[in-house]
């Protein structure tokens, strides 16, 4: 008798295994990062409307809601950066007759690069704004 039982995926499949939950958490970093990008857009929009509007937007950033969004976006960005760079050596494989780089070296290069770029951006912003205020 041939009567196979067809297993259909349940909508809550991702809750049933820690590996799937980690995957969904990684994908969910997109939500706060999307909202954060909209916040950046709103800042640019207020800038186009003139100095007063922009300064009002700047003050609005102190609101607890937007600080909470920043906190969430920071956690998401960090988790994204760590999980993203962990996967880079699986996709970026440098293995030719002339040049060969180990996956560990590819990963390390990206980790160092990310730390330098992120810290550099923050430092640059602080220094530039200090210099601008000093003039």
């Amino acid at each position: 008798m041939h009567k196979p039982y067809i297993q259909r995926q349940r909508a809550d499949w991702w809750l049933r295994n820690p590996a799937y939950r980690r995957y969904m958490l990684r994908e969910a970093t997109a939500l706060p990062l999307f909202l954060y990008t909209l916040l950046l857009m709103s800042g640019l929009f207020q800038f186009t409307r003139g100095e007063a509007a922009f300064l009002q937007w700047l003050e609005m950033l102190r609101s607890p809601w937007l600080l909470a969004l920043h906190g969430l976006a920071l956690a998401a960005a960090l988790f994204h950066a760590v999980t993203w760079i962990a996967l880079v050596p699986k996709i970026l494989v440098i293995d030719t007759d002339r040049l060969r780089v180990s996956p560990a070296a590819v990963k390390l290069a990206h980790q160092v690069g990310a730390v330098v770029c992120n810290a550099g951006l923050l430092l640059l912003a602080v220094l530039l704004l200090r210099a601008a205020a000093g003039n």
Partner: peptide, 22 residues
């Protein structure tokens, strides 16, 4: 979508997720 669990469970360390993404 690079869930990556296929590579975790592979008993022969084939790493199919890496193969697909390359």
């Amino acid at each position: 979508t690079f869930v990556g669990y296929c590579s975790e469970v592979c008993p022969k360390d084939v790493d199919p997720a890496a193969a697909i993404n390359r």
